[in-house]
Design a protein around this nucleic acid. Structure first.
Lengths: 181, 181
DNA sequence: TGCGCGCTGTCCGGATTCGAACACTTGAGT
DNA sequence: ACTCAAGTGTTCGAATCCGGACAGCGCGCA
């Protein structure tokens, strides 16, 4: 596949950006950093990142995470396949729940354990790639998958499956043969 | 549609069960309660619930939520369309994150605000129904949706879309016509 | 202005798919 | 043992779908 993944880290604290860069950068992972949340949209439209790691609080004193949630929503709208990991120093359960319900794939607390952060970003990248691959599915493959699942759900009963799929029983036989099921 | 939704509440504390029953029971929502986590699997196979509300800690003194996570995994495996809401008195951020990453749709803290709990269970029910409806999709409708999304993703470019879908351009024209797109 | 290129929309003979029908098996009920 | 309902696997003429081909259109470019 692709030799390395590319990650964008967004935080208003330069020390945090530097630390994240140190932890994440490697042979297989490139890191780009950004201090301002306003530039995120342009950045993810220019470069196709495999994961985003973004802070939840930018204005000093703010700690309700509203900006992080807004940024999350923005990214999810702009590219639903892109996995977003949120981080914050002021973690509350309610905020974490909101974040994950809003489509974040993970939530790490600052200060982080290096290994924890790395693993979170790694699996976010993997998930992004999986989503992008699934999005490229061919009509034929999609049909195959759907038939397979439907048959399984109806425990192999061809008549029921055919009815559920909205095709005739004979048609299902043909398609099963075509897809070697 | 269906006149009411059915919810299963699981907790080892009878007071909690009673309180939940009081809050949730209504014209549109039926509640069944269960004290023992061991009976959950049998219960969800017998009755088709629209939502599950389960506690995370059963043994006294336990508060790491491991049982709740295990029960969650069990339910997700048994019926992936069934939405599960977790609740706990010993909420930590890490636990909440684990729960949602494990497929719970929401996470409420005890003691709860009645309105919060009701809303969580209501939207869990709605999500379950949506998932079940999507699962019953016909092959034809699935094809239509996929074509629609692919066209949108490629900004209406027929040639690109056809290539992405793995069919000839002419075939895409025919299917678009068939589905009135 | 003319050229090249990519995309569009449509056509048509051959390939494929359609579903109603038929014969057969299985299993539960009486 | 008999019946009946439900499911299976297959056939066949009709209906549909296939994709290569062709002509037209817009647009950047020299």
């Amino acid at each position: 596949m692709s030799p390395h993944s590319t990650v964008l880290v967004v935080d208003d604290d330069k020390d945090v950006l530097h630390a994240a860069e140190l932890v994440l950068s490697s042979e297989t992972m490139r890191v780009k950093v950004l201090e301002s949340p306003g530039e995120v949209e342009a950045a993810i439209e220019r470069t196709m990142f495999d994961a985003l790691l973004v802070d939840m609080n930018f204005a000093v004193g703010k700690r309700d995470g509203g900006q992080g949630l807004g940024l999350l929503a923005l990214c999810r709208r702009s590219d639903p396949t892109l996995s977003v990991v949120l981080m914050t120093a002021y973690a509350g359960v309610a905020l974490a729940v909101e974040a994950l319900k809003g489509g974040a794939v993970d939530f790490v607390m600052k200060p982080w354990r290096n290994e924890t952060l790395l693993e979170a970003v790694r699996s976010a990248s993997a998930l992004t790639r999986q989503r992008r691959q699934e999005e490229q599915i061919t009509l034929d493959a999609l049909e195959r998958q759907t038939i397979e699942r439907t048959l399984e759900r109806h425990r192999g009963n061809i008549s029921l499956s055919a009815a559920a799929l909205g095709i005739s029983r004979a048609a299902l036989y043909r398609r099963m043969a075509k897809h070697a099921l």
